[in-house]
Structures are given as structure tokens and as C-alpha cells.
Amino acid sequence: MKTYTLKTEQAIPISLEDAWNFFSSPLNLAKITPKEMNFVVTSDYTADTKMYPGMIITYIVSPVLGIKMNWMTEITHVKEGEYFVDEQRFGPYALWHHQHHFKSITGGMLMNDILNYAIPYGIIGRIANTILVENQIKKIFSYREKAIKELFGEF
């Protein structure tokens, strides 16, 4: 199985505490996901719910051509104020392991993401990644960076 890695880094002009409070709430993910993906958290959580190890989060998302898909992730690791990891349990990927890292810096905080993923279906999956998936993931992370700047300001 061929795996792919995407790493991103973004400085944000807010405190580590404020960043953690925002990013550790599952419902806030929809605020930084492209609207055309029709991303909806279907788990029964409130805005005050914070991530914890073992937490299951379910979504409906339309990543391609408006086709709705169910997706389930588990929060496998959490170190409050430092990092959390989500892993797909059900969805379109053969592997989805997404690390979110946070640290204080002068004037705000630094967020690093490390995404490791794999597409099923062997050579067909590799072709799909080259033609569509890799670019789609990069667009999602690019949108997210822009949305975070709109929410919290430019560093």
C-alpha cells in the first residue's frame, strides 16, 4: 500500500489556550472546511464538547461531485495544549492518520499538521491520488489556512 504525507505549518496570532479550545471542539471543524464539501458532524456533541482519547466523531461529507459519504474518525491520542491525533475508522481512505501539534510562540501559537494517508485499490488508488485526491487534500488545507486567518487574523 502506497502511503502519502502532507505537512503544514501555520502561525496564528492567538494564545495557545484559545487555539486549543477552538481546535479541540469537533463542531469547529465545519468552520474551516470548504463549504462545497457539505461537511456535517453527525455525532451528538455540543459546542462545549472537547476531544478525548477514544472519542468517535461521525460526519457526512461530499468530497467529490456532491456524492455524500459517511466518515468516522477516532481521536486516538490527546495531550492537552500540545497535540491530538485523529484516525479514520470508516471512510474513503485505506489509511488516515492526522496529527495536530500546537506550541506557543512569541505573538501567538504555531500549529503543525502531519497527515499520512493511503488510497485503497492498489494502482487505481495511486492513479486517483495523482489525478484527484492529492490536489483535493491540498485545496482543503489551503482553504483551512485562509479560513483560520479570517477567524483569528494574520500573524
Rank of each mutant, 00 (worst) to 15 (best):
Y121G: 03
H77W: 04
G81H: 14
G91I: 10
L95G: 03
H100R: 10
G125V: 02
Y121W: 12
L110K: 04
H97I: 02
N112V: 00
M109L: 09
G91Y: 10
V78S: 02
G125S: 05
R89H: 05
N116T: 14
G125R: 14
N116K: 11
N116F: 11
D86Y: 03
E80N: 05
A118E: 03
G107H: 08
Q88E: 15
Q88V: 10
I123T: 11
P120D: 15
I114S: 13
N116E: 14
Q99H: 04
D113T: 02
K103R: 15
I119R: 10
A94W: 02
Y93E: 05
E82V: 03
T106V: 10
Y117N: 02
P92L: 15
I114R: 05
F84T: 03
I119P: 00
Q88L: 14
F90W: 13
P120Y: 15
G108S: 15
S104T: 05
H77N: 07
T106I: 01
G122Y: 04
G91E: 12
L110E: 11
F84D: 03
E87P: 00
S104P: 00
N116H: 12
D86F: 01
Q99V: 11
L115P: 00
I124A: 12
Y93L: 12
Y83L: 12
P120W: 15
W96Y: 05
Y93H: 08
G122C: 11
H77Q: 10
E87G: 00
L110D: 02
K79S: 14
I123D: 01
E80W: 12
H101Q: 11
Q99R: 03
H100M: 08
G107W: 10
H101E: 14
G81I: 07
I123L: 10
Y117V: 03
H98S: 07
